[in-house]
């Protein structure tokens, strides 16, 4: 077995770009999926039955599907639904957003429901509107409680972005797999890919632990 690690150094800029796309994809997904999750959570708590039912169906469906399948599904169904082809990046983003919005919705719902009813009632008694009560009383308190779970979701999402590589989104996993098949330096590239994910992911996992310690709800 002869190993040639120079391939990793030669492709450093490609890998760097791939890592940037991975981070961009993670950040964009979270940016969309946090408001998405809040809206879905509010819809589930809605008094209008059809709205609540739709949101429940949406959340349960996208929470209980393998992401890989969702990625393929978006890849084939989106062009038909929209009538034109979308770049892989957008398709991957949509699949990730569907999945993470569903998760975030559950997170926010439990966060919102954990704020005692008396708080909203007090707000209403002062003459605040329901929207004001939600924005100024419930959400700020719920926010603190859901933060640790959102942080965990962030790390899962960061790892899950590797799955959109199957539809040729040029993120880290896809880039590394491409270089692997072009250079035949399989062991070197796969190890480099794992190492880069580790270097990026390990501090994130540690930060999540810290957020849990700082903000975690204790009995």
């Amino acid at each position: 077995m002869k190993l040639d690690w120079s391939i990793v150094w030669q492709s450093r800029w490609l890998l760097f770009e791939g890592a940037l796309v991975t981070i961009l994809l993670t950040a964009l997904t979270m940016l969309i999926a946090v408001p998405g999750g809040i809206v879905l959570a509010l819809m589930r708590n809605s008094r209008l039955k059809p709205i609540a039912l739709f949101a429940t169906g949406f959340v349960e469906l996208f929470r209980n599907l393998p992401l890989l399948l969702l990625v393929y599904w978006a890849f084939y169904v989106m062009p038909v639904l929209t009538g034109f082809g979308l770049p892989p990046f957008t398709t991957g983003l949509v699949a990730l957003c569907l999945n993470v919005s569903a998760y975030n919705s559950e997170t926010f719902r439990s966060g919102i429901n954990s704020i005692r009813r008396g708080q909203s009632e007090a707000g209403l008694a002062l003459g605040m509107s329901r929207l004001e009560v939600f924005r100024q009383i419930v959400l700020p308190q719920a926010w603190r409680r859901v933060l640790p779970i959102l942080a965990s979701t962030w790390v899962s999402l960061f790892k899950d972005t590797s799955l959109v590589s199957v539809i040729a989104v040029g993120e880290l996993a896809h880039t590394a797999m491409q270089i692997r098949s072009q250079s035949f330096r399989v062991l070197e590239m796969l190890t480099a890919m794992a190492a880069i994910y580790w270097v990026l992911g390990y501090p994130q996992a540690k930060i999540v632990d810290w957020i849990h310690r700082k903000y975690g709800v204790r009995e």
Partner: peptide
Amino acid sequence: DSMRAIPVFVVLVWIYFA
């Protein structure tokens, strides 16, 4: 902590190919 940082996709292809 390493497993929390590395995607399962990466673990699978590493075990299978490397």
